[in-house]
Design a protein around this nucleic acid. Structure first.
Lengths: 340, 340
DNA sequence: TATTTATACTAAATCGGTTTAGTTTAAATT
DNA sequence: AATTTAAACTAAACCGATTTAGTATAAATA
């Protein structure tokens, strides 16, 4: 019942470690190990349930069949979904996922990247804080295969899979505008993240195309640490005279949840008085009162493509896949804008 | 910029690998390495940003400062939350988490356990399929530290952190009974899982205490693979004559979501005609129409306690913590039972 | 028959650490 | 002066694989 090693197999069969290792790695034929010997080894290994020690293998091969996944927070719905897809896809390739949450702390993220590399991960998928330019540059320099998801560094060329935040919010705004909402509030986070910046720009662009001047008092940029409190005041301000919005776009799902609670407290009728669109979904948004019109990010695609690209990188296929993908987010129309 | 090794430090300072290794592991004093030498080593290491190769260290130490987490599905809200807490807590102990989803497949789970062990994880946290008794026994025999969460093997003694499913559902049923609901349907999954069995028993016990005979046609046990379809028929059957339930308990959050959609389709008024309690929460259940009364599992405690216990095991503290904890789930009253 | 070539292996180095069992030098003790 | 002891190190084995550079034997060729 104890763990069996290559050495044990070799000794038991009066063979060398080399032969055993070669055969177990399916390199018996090319190394002219006789069929009989191969069979003996394979049988013995199977019978005694041999499984290689991944650390030893990783150490000597310099790789580990493991990819690292660093995300802001695994308990965030959005990232949990993506992580699920990444894991499934990675497994298909025979890879295991080592994951970690940065908790949105760049220092933390930096440490995690180091730690992953020391664990010889063969590649990284990274939803970065976007405040670790140096680390990213280092990854490039060291030629560590990696793919950024969700958040990129616009200043340098990297592999990435990204959702078109700009167009996404535009779709949200267009939807509202087409339903004749004209005073559209935008509730978002301070743009430490490029994604947030893009979403804000998308909002402004949509208004512009409708020849509406964007009004800064309708734009609420909340602090990343204190948004739970700030959102209350912001919503009151949006809803009350003189702003008196007739619609609000929330730039991410947790702001939507918080915002909805607040709107209830303020007794604002959705969609009657204020229409709502959420950028990004939460599982039960179709069950909410009213069901929330949202811009849904293609989580499965983000996961799948990022792994595909990473594997391509790892295998060194230079000419293969596109190494950068911009995906469309799509509008899911529900009742929160009064369209149904 | 290339990776620096212990050997490099040793060579540069004209010292042996041994000394360098000892000092870097804070074992310089006990090994009588002079203060000066220690300082030299430490300074050099810091300056050149030395970080040990975790694989090599793991291989030679036989451990890895990594714990394995195997759950049914990381994209499930419940497990994502738990995983988040486990990760945070493990980090506090200086550990990294290697995680994997079994996708509810016992074979898969079995493979993952093997794979984790080969990666020299120092311990495992496992939300098992409950169909791998042999693997669990093996873990015990090999003295691999592990903790079961959420799902246990009643036949053998293990460390575990568990929610009291029996009492949890009882609370749900009691709540309904106290609101004078008497025909309470129970929608659950076929009891491959002990948790499901306990929940069913809790339901029956609650009825019994109210001297209500439990009626099998009010109990819908759906198949694990096909519940999405089966739930439609089940709900129709519950709602229609002769069953005509006035309340339904869903034994897990995704059944609740599906069920609510179905009830809408059937135009059933909640809570007017049928009251609802969900075992287990989903993020937006407070925003749903009507807000869903639920039994909430203490995700943070599950995560924290399981890591505490595991660390205790890993460190070999026999007499330390309780190695088994049964946690209370608590009722969150919202409007779906008409109580508010 | 001597030489080449294939076949079927193996010894030993290597990956980057940790650890055991010393060794060398100087100071302290008898 | 001879012996112990302590201080400050180090050589080499080890963890469990992979991999390079062979070797021994038999068969084929010249």
């Amino acid at each position: 019942m104890k763990k069996i090693l290559i050495k044990d197999i070799a000794n038991s069969l009066n063979l060398s470690k080399t032969s055993v290792s070669l055969v177990l790695n399916k390199r018996g034929d090319e190394n002219k190990i006789s069929k009989q010997t191969q069979k003996k080894i394979l049988d013995y290994a199977k019978k005694h349930n041999y499984v290689p020690n991944s650390l030893a293998r990783g150490l000597s091969r310099g790789k580990s069949e493991t990819i690292g996944l660093i995300i802001p927070d695994i308990s965030d719905d959005h990232y949990a979904k993506i992580a699920g897809h990444i894991e499934k896809k990675a497994n298909d390739y025979g890879y295991v996922v080592l994951y970690a949450s940065s908790n949105k702390d760049p220092k933390n993220e930096s440490k995690l990247i180091q730690s992953m590399i020391n664990r010889q991960v063969d590649g990284l998928i990274l939803a970065s804080t976007q405040q670790n330019l140096e680390d990213i540059k280092l990854l490039k320099k060291k030629k560590v295969p990696f793919v950024l998801i969700d958040r990129i560094y616009p200043k340098i060329k990297t592999n990435y899979v990204l959702v078109d935040n700009f167009r996404g919010v535009q779709k949200a705004a267009d939807h509202l505008l087409n339903l004749n909402r004209r005073k559209i509030g935008f509730v978002t986070l301070k743009p430490g993240l490029d994604a947030m910046r893009q979403r804000l720009l998308g909002y402004k662009e949509a208004l512009k195309k409708f020849k509406i001047n964007s009004n800064n008092s309708l734009i609420k940029e909340l602090s990343n640490v204190n948004y739970e409190h700030e959102i209350k005041e912001s919503l009151e301000d949006l809803v009350r005279f003189p702003n008196s919005v007739d619609a609000i776009i929330f730039s991410t799902h947790y702001l939507t949840s918080l915002g909805l609670r607040e709107l209830r407290r303020l007794n604002v009728k959705v969609p009657h008085e204020v229409a709502i669109v959420s950028f990004d979904e939460l599982g039960a948004f179709d069950l909410v009162d009213p069901p929330i019109t949202s811009i849904k990010q293609p989580g499965a695609d983000i996961g799948d493509f990022s792994v595909d690209i990473l594997m391509d990188e790892i295998k060194g296929n230079e000419g293969g896949l596109d190494k950068a993908r911009m995906l469309e987010a799509f509008l899911i129309v529900r009742k929160s804008c009064g369209a149904l």
